[in-house]
């Protein structure tokens, strides 16, 4: 019978196996990229191998490769596997409350950050700071049921006004 700690450790090692594999692939690509970069520099600007732009990257990527292999070995030794990547387990992991909450926060952050200072599609009108901020605050608090609707709207309005006054007016940050 596994204890909670052991279960959490084993889940961590499962993730370590996947991440180690991703790191191994990334570091190999970086090694190839840095060698290419160095060779090009050696041909065009007469750089030596050790002062070529890719040399440090080559050393660091090799170090990363060694550490990733070490991580993979440790994770496998401690019982890590890739069985959790089976479709049924993935579905179970994705369709739970916690994942959906995480996704919701990321979606709101994505919309707020990518919409910040952008123009309305098809026009030259910049979406104002107060509008994006107010909508973001209301949606975030409403989705997570932070308080009653009235409280959320008043709170969001006040916060938007305060941040605009403090940072836009007093600190003179050119907010959109």
């Amino acid at each position: 019978m596994q204890t909670t700690d052991q279960r959490s450790d084993s889940r961590m090692r499962d993730k370590d196996v996947l991440f180690a594999l991703i790191l191994i692939l990334s570091s190999v690509s970086l090694i190839v990229y840095s060698l290419n970069l160095s060779i090009r520099a050696m041909r065009t600007v007469n750089a030596t191998f050790y002062d070529a732009p890719g040399f440090s990257m080559l050393v660091i990527s090799t170090g990363l490769l060694v550490l990733s292999v070490a991580l993979l070995v440790v994770a496998l030794k401690q019982g890590g596997t890739l069985q959790w990547l089976a479709p049924r387990q993935i579905r179970a992991a994705l369709w739970n409350r916690s994942t959906l909450k995480t996704l919701a926060v990321f979606v709101y952050l994505f919309l707020y950050m990518t919409g910040f200072g952008q123009t309305i599609p098809g026009t030259h009108v910049v979406i104002p700071f107060w509008l994006t901020t107010f909508v973001f605050l209301v949606l975030m608090m409403l989705t997570f049921k932070a308080a009653s609707i009235g409280y959320i709207v008043v709170m969001s309005g006040l916060c938007t006004l305060m941040t605009y006054l403090i940072f836009g007016y007093f600190v003179k940050i050119p907010l959109p």
């Binding site: 975030m140 608090m141 709170m155 916060c159 941040t163």
Partner: peptide, 10 residues
């Protein structure tokens, strides 16, 4: 849940 959206704005 009220504070963190405000922190996100900051």
């Amino acid at each position: 849940r009220i504070l963190m959206p405000i922190i996100a704005v900051l």
